[in-house]
Design a protein around this nucleic acid. Structure first.
Lengths: 350, 350
DNA sequence: CTGAAAGCGCTTACAG
DNA sequence: CTGAAAGCGCTTACAG
């Protein structure tokens, strides 16, 4: 079998717990000579501590769960944005000596089970509904919920400034002279990411007297966007600009518009949200609201690790957002001729 | 603390190991009455076995590692294809009672460390170079390498019929009348995925007397494709069709071609490989070689689990591939006028 | 059908 | 600066 602490101890002629101490860097209580000798043997023999034994004895697993909701019997899926968050967190956790357990969650009770089963020091919640997080028991290890507005005190939510992002999108469109706007995103209730994006969008529209915005509920998929785009001019003839709450959706809408013979951004402008690579792959390139992924990852990891170490964490952290201007927004044709130069863009979009 | 086997045993008035037996379904050796009583208590108290204790005692972790190479200090990244493979395998492993540990690997020695540290029952290698897998020590738990041609007997490679896929792409183009083809993909050596795709492509081209194919080495990124597409007509004026070894690359090439004023597929046809969603998001929609992802996942999981249970596994498994015909391939203009109807597509491309 | 014992490889107090 | 003891929560033979 693999080499154990005992093997090292025997070879070094010291006790098992002295080896444990040097392996764990509790170097203050061991003589330099012993440290060096033990380290040499550890390296030579290729000793690696058994994580199970360590967790069991220390009742600390140095493991963090990445929990993702899945429909019963379905496969685990992750958006490109979530994949990037996981990838970034894995690196930081690894460098901090933590491990990552990836697990699909079929029903809420499973998050508690997963935590107890592995003695998880903490967990990251990816893609859960706020209501699901609210319903989680308040006791247990620290939880970090990405993009959540949940009020559960156990979960600290790390998310972007969705309200601000919605406002950014709306103002960019309004500054270009658009007055009949459409907000396209999944149905929303009283809270949550989509609600916030909508409210920010709405507030900016309401600030301009002759501007109005309609809302249409669609699932966040390319196909739903495509269908909406194709029917857009027929069903919403006055609309000249669309804000979609996700890039995939926006890309679908653009494709649908193009399919139906409408030019983008000539006749209809489109703004997305997320700044996925995808937005640069399509033509016209998508103007979108970008989140600072690196910062999100850094903050999320720091929060979680801090909480594991007993620090108090804020209930939520909101990250900045910015507009990435590409090619999918232009001055509307109607405004172009009717309203004259006054409604042309007024410069920087803020 | 959490409820343990001992708590359940005391409440049920039986020994600890009887509880262990019913929890683990070793029901043959326990009376029905006891089983039912113990199960009731387990459910009521919400008992969940401690995975660390279990691994330690059984020297079997019921955990599989998903290992992904990362550059030192870099974040872990996964292609959409890899993400789908992981997602699919996670589900099957979960249903089989296994857990998934996700880990970035900076240098080859870390795979052995990871396996020993967690007593991993097996591991999935995602995105490793064949040479890296070849260099892994042959002893240790079973390894499953996705898309690998490694000869290491410890690793069973599950991959698509890359040679066949290359042939499919070439024949589709040849049947449309193309005679000056270009193979675009990362630089390749004597083996590996790209080599095989090239060889299959080449063999099909060589089977047509007046057809020739050039090879150009590019990284598998949208940006590299874009640059190649923009320069294509200037640098390869005779080429009328391109086969790219990955969809992202193909999409970049199409965009570059369009940027440079070349029509796709009017002047240049393009075929990709992978069948990512992305291919349907762009215009023209990408014709590409598709892998059967569901089958790949099912086979990979079955192989790995089988090997963990001591079954012998083949050294490699090759999965079928098929052509998905969309809009990026057409009869070349030159062939259109010069060669006449004879070189038009000859029907279904298999 | 059921149980007492030993042990998996480590860490945590506590002594010296 | 170093070590002997107890114990983390489970499973594995082995008895009865």
């Amino acid at each position: 079998m693999a080499v154990t602490l005992k093997d090292i101890a025997e070879e070094a002629g010291v006790s098992l717990m002295t080896v444990s101490n040097v392996v764990n860097g509790k170097t203050a209580r061991v003589s330099p000579a012993t440290i060096e000798r033990v380290r040499g043997i550890v390296d030579r023999r290729g000793y690696v501590a058994n994580a199970s034994a360590r967790s069991l004895a220390a009742s600390r697993s140095r493991t963090v769960g990445v929990l993702v909701p899945v429909a019963e019997g379905d496969m685990l899926t992750m958006s490109p944005h979530h994949v990037a968050v996981i990838g970034g967190m894995e690196r930081q956790l690894r460098q901090a000596g933590y491990h990552v357990l990836l697990r699909g969650i079929t029903e809420p009770a499973e998050v508690g089970e997963a935590v107890r089963e592995w003695g998880l020091d903490g967990a990251v919640l990816l893609g859960f509904l706020d209501a699901e997080i609210d319903a989680l028991p308040a006791e247990g290890g620290p939880l970090l919920a990405i993009d959540s507005y949940s009020l559960n005190p156990r979960a600290t939510g790390v998310r972007s400034d969705d309200f601000g992002g919605g406002g950014l999108a709306a103002r960019h469109l309004l500054e270009h002279g658009h007055r009949r706007l459409l907000f396209a995103g999944p149905a929303f209730g009283d809270s949550g990411v989509v609600r916030r994006r909508h409210d920010g969008f709405r507030a900016a529209v309401d600030a301009v007297t002759d501007a109005t915005a309609e809302v249409v509920a669609v699932n966040t998929t390319y196909e739903d966007g495509l269908a909406l785009g194709r029917a857009l001019r027929a069903e919403h003839p006055a609309v000249t600009a669309v804000f979609a709450t996700a890039d995939v959706l926006a890309v679908g809408i653009m494709a649908g518009l193009l399919d139906a013979g409408a030019s983008v951004p000539g006749e209809v402008s489109v703004v997305g949200f997320d700044d996925l690579d995808l937005g640069q792959f399509v033509r016209p390139r998508l103007t979108t609201v970008a989140q600072d992924l690196a910062e999100k990852v850094a903050v999320a990891t720091r929060m979680l690790l801090g909480e594991i170490d007993g620090e108090a964490a804020p209930d939520e952290v909101e990250l900045g957002v910015r507009l990435v201007t590409r090619e999918s927004v232009a001055v509307p044709r109607a405004a172009d001729s009717e309203a004259g130069p006054d409604s042309a863009p007024t410069g920087a979009s803020r």
